[in-house]
């Protein structure tokens, strides 16, 4: 399998604090990969560094092309999608306008149309012309994911999509992730909880202290309770 995203010896800093201390992992074509770890280990920083939102040191290759040092909008245009953990919807714009800004041009193109989003989440259609700021947390999470999908990424990085959601919403998020993978889009899922990650991922990485401390298949992680105890359970 050819690796679509290859991160090698990635370092990142906030001011003087050395947050990522040589992270290495990869995501293959059409793969769902999870990046796990406790709060504060640097998972969000890792995907922000891949997107160019935090200056990366080291190598980040997308489809064989070095993207470390490129601007965030250039990276997005290559086909990398990013769904932030804090649901950065544009609150004063309507749901429809939020989705529209997910598109990279005025025309809907590629795998996803606005109608698809409304089909998957009828709730978004009902609220299409309401300012996104008044949506519930779960609805905002859906909107953020759909907004990024409107840009037709080939690989989507989703940061803690189930954080703070009710169980029913968590299930919806899981369904959407499977739908995304079903259309041939690779997924890098950042999570803290194991449930969804174990269920849908092909491979998992666990981060600790700014490095990758475990790599394997869901079954390997399920079997390895020392790793779970040391790096995941709270």
């Amino acid at each position: 399998m050819s690796a679509m995203l290859e991160v090698e010896d990635l370092h990142a800093y906030y001011g003087k604090s050395h947050i990522l201390q040589g992270v290495t992992f990869s995501v293959g074509e059409g793969e769902i990969v999870s990046l796990l770890g406790r709060n504060g280990v640097g998972r969000s920083t890792a995907i922000k560094a891949i997107m160019g939102d935090v200056p990366p040191r080291g190598s980040v290759k997308f489809r064989g092309r070095q993207i470390a040092g490129m601007k965030p909008h250039q990276i997005a245009r290559l086909g990398l999608g990013y769904v932030p953990e804090n649901r950065e919807i544009f609150p004063s714009l309507t749901v429809r306008q939020n989705l529209f800004l997910g598109q990279k041009s005025t025309r809907e193109s590629g795998r996803w149309k606005m109608a698809d989003m409304f089909g998957i989440f009828p709730r978004l259609e009902e609220r299409a012309d309401t300012p996104a700021g008044v949506l519930s947390g779960g609805e905002q999470q859906m909107l953020t994911m759909c907004r990024t999908l409107m840009g037709d990424p080939d690989l989507i990085m989703v940061d803690e999509p189930t954080e703070g959601l009710a169980p029913m919403m968590v299930e919806l998020v899981g369904k959407l992730l499977e739908e995304i993978a079903g259309r041939g889009v690779s997924i890098l899922l950042v999570e803290q909880k194991l449930a969804i990650a174990l269920k849908i991922s092909r491979r998992l990485y666990v981060m600790g202290h700014g490095r990758v401390v475990f790599e394997g298949k869901p079954a390997d992680l399920s079997a390895d309770s020392p790793v779970r105890k040391e790096w995941l359970e709270v």
Binding site: M51, D53, K71, P72, H73, I75, A76, R77, Y82, P84, E88, F90, P91, S92, L93, Q97, F100, L101, G102, K104, T106, R147, T148, G151
Partner: peptide, 25 residues
């Protein structure tokens, strides 16, 4: 207009707008 929407969004969330593929600079 679309440019107007991008400007409105960039007023509060410039880096998110950039990561959706818009040339914010």
């Amino acid at each position: 207009t679309r440019v107007g929407l991008i400007i409105q969004a960039a007023l509060t969330h410039p880096s998110m707008v950039a990561m959706l593929g818009h040339d914010v600079p």
